[in-house]
Design a protein around this nucleic acid. Structure first.
Lengths: 370, 370
DNA sequence: GAAGGTCTTGTAAACGTTTGCATCTCGGGA
DNA sequence: TCCCGAGATGCAAACGTTTACAAGACCTTC
């Protein structure tokens, strides 16, 4: 029998009387040793019972477990992880989580990993290399067993070094940090979108997108450029704006591009936030879509459908991407051996609605291309 | 001087030659004891140096810190927390994070707490009592130092018990779990919205909202009811729908309410997801707003502005709520003594746009109220 | 009746930190 | 010369677990 340790809170051996029904309302949290003392067992046995080890006699295990719930025992993961080298946290590092792509993914990942008893640590980089580094350090210190990351455009070397120790999955963007990644095929989608506009007969295209320092931004731009080139055309610099992905920036850029003298007959937008801004600007300027100009936006298709006219949209498969990354990370955290997924690349889709049509004025003025 | 422990990875005392520039590319993570060995110091001194304790001589501290970065030392928070009883995690438990209210808050909280070196653990309840309990258990096990929670409608007694040990802040909803909470004054906003419709001369109102088992859903409904009552009117049961907050449900409910024979002249919607569904239904049914019917929706004002006509909207102060809860939680985690904020209740705002107008047909048919 | 299992339990050493206390060194004052 | 205090460092005990190993109990088999 195990001797009573330190200062046994209840009396000595016999069933305590002084504290008749203590449900451990509060006070110090109950630890394994408390349970062990109360049951005259060793902490080893209690630990085993709580972990459903087969080594402990069923009736003993039952007694332990019942006492555990009665006393409201809650295990200390910190101690457990420290001793057993099991990691119970997964990091999730993205520029922000208001973006639907990331919020859906965060949701899915948190839900998924919870099933295997893991937890998601949410970290926000704001696309700032400094904050990103700080977040990574923090995550590493928390001993995360895996990391989902949408790398910022100018990730520091120090950050990359930190990443080496961790098993990471890149999400939505890639910066060559890992074999594993979940992306969507933005390039193909923008090729398709551009083709759609060219087929309608548009000669002068404008593009508003995000910086090409980040992989998906670059891909979208490249898609447009490549498909134009295919027809011997080019994207004019003065009809191109690469901006931070905020609604405000989208608004301003659209306003600028659309109030000048030679307005493009079609516009492509490469980010959902920018798209909202553009939609606002188009409305404020009184531009009729698609008569005055065709418009293709990017993002989830929910609000675009409600716009008048309903917007032709490049929709990223957010839900599928979320499922995919959740799958990968939950696999990555349980059986570390078999690595099924390398790079997953899901197709983005061009949903043609009412905002694209052949240009009204037969041809663009004098300038021969764009 | 401290004797070299266990198996010193480098040679004995003199500057090592065999491994000239080892930057600890990988291998076992470096621990305090490794630094101590390499510098012939005790782990106590190294620990103190890393924690900027004044007790250690500046030049020694400098040597330690420089070696730490050279070797890529990353502290183990688990061990640190275990020993020092400092908590480095904050829990964030909400039904989902796709809802803008929660995603903005998650973002703000994660960013804020990071400044004091804490981290946010994201947990999703899906408004399910079972998942919620499981999440809470998990969070408690992770030894969170604080918890932000939007309680599910039917939180279990077991969950409430778990909460007792933690310092919690209720967010967006309350279920009497804590003194601290940040809410928005939905009741007042819906009183105002209802008043707006009544003043326009509407006699027959419909309301589509979420369950009243959750505090904010209840408040919205109560606001409508109270203001109607003030004019001696009532919200008819057949013109009221309380539903799960999904776009789909909103669509269906609106479809149902609006395709019947006596259509309400005005409709109030009490959730952002429901609002989107309603907007879709209205469009699909070819109902002209505000001529055929006035419409007030709920949520962030971004997409409502883009609808035609721009929608009169009850906007919750998401950003302010997020800031507020982030403030509270970061205070709660650092100086545990002074508790400044109890219940913070921010005003929601009624933004009147183009979707509300006096009813066209002079009066509703025969039925005298609603 | 000894030998060798199979179960069940206990002992104690980890895991990587922090920190109370003891120890050592040094310089100054009596 | 001795003592004392301050400043810097080391020793070792925590923190709450898990787990290798030992050990006891009991049964089977020869």
């Amino acid at each position: 029998m195990a001797a009573s340790r330190t200062s046994s809170p209840s009396g000595s051996g016999e069933p305590d009387i002084a504290e008749p029904m203590r449900a451990d309302g509060d006070g110090a949290p109950v630890r394994i040793v408390d349970l062990a003392d109360e049951l005259d067992l060793s902490i080893a046995t209690v630990s085993r019972a709580l972990n459903n080890s087969a080594a402990v006699r069923p009736e003993v295990a039952e007694r332990v477990r019942s006492l555990a719930v009665r006393r409201g025992y809650v295990a200390n993961r910190l101690a457990r992880s420290l001793r057993s080298h099991t990691r119970s946290f997964i990091g999730f590092l993205v520029p922000d989580v208001e973006n639907l792509a990331y919020s859906i993914a965060a949701d899915a990942c948190a839900t998924y990993v919870a099933r295997s008893g893991h937890q998601l640590i949410l970290a926000i980089s704001g696309d700032d290399a400094g904050l990103e580094l700080q977040a990574l350090r923090s995550l590493a210190e928390a001993q995360v067993g895996g990391l989902i990351v949408a790398p910022s455009p100018d990730m520091s070397a120090e950050s990359r070094r930190l990443l080496r120790g961790l098993s990471v999955v890149e999400f939505n963007r890639t910066a060559g940090l890992s074999e594993d990644m979940v992306l969507c095929d933005d390039r193909a989608a923008f090729v398709e979108a551009t083709r759609h506009l060219l087929d309608l007969g548009h000669q002068s295209l404008a593009y508003i997108g995000t910086t090409d320092a980040v992989s998906n931004g670059r891909e979208r731009l490249e898609g447009v450029r490549a498909e134009l080139r295919r027809d011997g055309k080019r994207l004019l610099k003065r009809r191109t704006r690469l901006l931070p992905p905020t609604e405000r920036d989208g608004y301003r850029a659209a306003h600028e591009l659309l109030s000048g003298p030679d307005r493009p007959t079609a516009m492509l937008v490469g980010s959902s936030n920018l798209s909202m801004g553009v939609a606002h600007a188009v409305r404020d300027l009184g531009i009729t879509v698609p008569d005055d100009m065709s418009l293709i936006v990017y993002g989830d298709s929910r609000w675009g459908q409600l716009y008048s006219p309903a917007l032709t949209t490049v929709t990223a498969p957010y839900a599928a991407m979320a499922r995919s990354v959740a799958d990968i990370v939950s696999g990555l955290v349980s059986h570390d051996d078999e690595r099924p997924a390398g790079a997953v690349r899901l197709p983005a889709e061009l949903v043609v609605r009412a905002s694209t049509a052949p240009p009204k004025q037969a041809a663009a003025p004098q300038n021969r291309s764009t």
